[in-house]
Amino acid sequence: MIDSDSVSVTAKDTSTIDSVVVGASIAGSYSPASGAGALSIGVALADNDIDNDTIASIDNVTIGASDDRTGR
């Protein structure tokens, strides 16, 4: 049971998102009079790190035990 005339709730969120992305590509071609040829290679790498810390506090509240079993 929480009994109070007014309640103040404060929360602080310190979320961070860190992203690292790397890409590479190689291309080629050849044809002296249809000796033909072609080459293409592509690579993409990504790393995402998401961190979330939230701290909340309640002020102006008296919290205690009670023998009241009614749930009020």
Rank of each mutant, 00 (worst) to 15 (best):
M1R: 08
M1L: 11
M1A: 12
I2G: 04
I2L: 13
D3Y: 01
D3G: 00
S4G: 02
D5N: 09
S6L: 07
S6P: 00
S6Y: 08
V7M: 08
S8Y: 05
S8W: 03
S8K: 07
V9R: 03
V9Y: 01
V9L: 14
T10K: 15
T10V: 14
T10P: 00
T10F: 09
A11M: 11
K12V: 09
K12A: 10
D13S: 14
D13G: 07
T14V: 14
T14D: 15
S15N: 15
S15L: 15
T16Y: 05
T16I: 09
I17F: 08
I17C: 06
S19C: 03
V20K: 13
V20H: 12
V20W: 12
V20L: 15
V21W: 04
V21T: 06
V22S: 10
V22R: 11
V22Q: 09
G23K: 04
A24P: 01
A24M: 08
S25K: 13
I26A: 15
I26G: 11
A27Y: 00
G28A: 10
Y30V: 12
S31W: 04
S31I: 08
S31T: 11
P32Q: 10
P32T: 07
A33E: 09
A33T: 05
A33W: 02
A33F: 04
A33K: 05
A33R: 02
A33H: 03
S34N: 10
S34F: 03
G35K: 12
G35I: 08
G35V: 09
A36I: 04
A36S: 12
A36P: 00
G37F: 03
G37H: 04
A38V: 03
S40Y: 01
S40I: 01
S40D: 04
S40M: 01
S40A: 06
I41M: 08
I41Y: 10
I41Q: 05
G42T: 13
G42R: 11
G42P: 00
V43D: 11
V43H: 06
V43E: 12
V43N: 10
A44Y: 02
A44C: 04
A44Q: 14
L45Y: 08
L45S: 11
A46C: 03
A46P: 00
D47S: 11
N48L: 07
N48W: 01
I50L: 10
I50A: 11
D51K: 13
D51N: 13
N52Y: 09
D53I: 13
T54M: 15
T54P: 02
T54D: 09
T54E: 15
T54K: 15
I55E: 14
I55S: 14
A56G: 05
S57E: 15
I58C: 03
I58V: 15
I58E: 05
D59P: 01
D59N: 06
N60H: 09
N60M: 02
V61L: 09
V61I: 10
T62P: 00
T62F: 02
I63A: 11
I63C: 02
G64K: 08
G64C: 03
G64S: 12
A65N: 13
S66Q: 07
D68Q: 12
R69K: 14
T70E: 07
T70S: 10
G71Y: 03
G71F: 03
G71E: 04
G71I: 05
G71M: 05
R72K: 15
R72S: 09
R72W: 01
